[in-house]
Amino acid sequence: MADQDNNKMTIIATKGTFDWAFPPFIIASTGVAMDKEVTIFFTFYGLNLLLKDTSKLRVSPIGNPSMPMKMPFGPKWLQKIDFGPKIPNVLWNIPGAESLVTWLMKKTMAKHGVAKIEELRSMCQEFDVKFIACEMTVELFGFDKADFIDGVEFAGAASYFDEAATGDHHLYM
């Protein structure tokens, strides 16, 4: 059983790429399903994960050397090849490369029954995960608050510490 006095969990979500959108929402939704009380503090590029329109999130193959790049379709021998180490990084600068890689990753995820970002995010909200957007970086990057999903609180680092005052699980992602 979860210790009711010590069941707080917080996550600081700092990354705004398509691939890194998943860990905060997966861990938060699972934590809250396991009776934790979860808060995610979104700051810097992590703010992108709170936008109503997530279609602009991209996975970048540039400077991402450990990302396996396998075809989600085609013959088995082709699907086994990891193109990641085979393609020179300079080629990923071609316009459209990011969109292509993002599209392939979405296909791969759908094939494996991985939830969509919006699905995980709305499950978090359904289970009462608290979303806090860092007010300072919202203003710094010129985000329009109307572009964020409903139910987001806007606050600063001190509010994060208030949330993180108890509990054993405080993660930076």
């Binding site: 997966i26 939704s29 699972t30 399903a33 396991m34 494996h112 029954g113 991985v114 939830a115 995980l120 499950m123 289970f127």
Partner: peptide, 14 residues
């Protein structure tokens, strides 16, 4: 069936 982590847990909870 066909769903991957963490969906089976989330749906079980629900």
């Amino acid at each position: 069936s066909g769903l991957n982590c963490p969906l089976p847990i989330l749906k079980t909870k629900k």
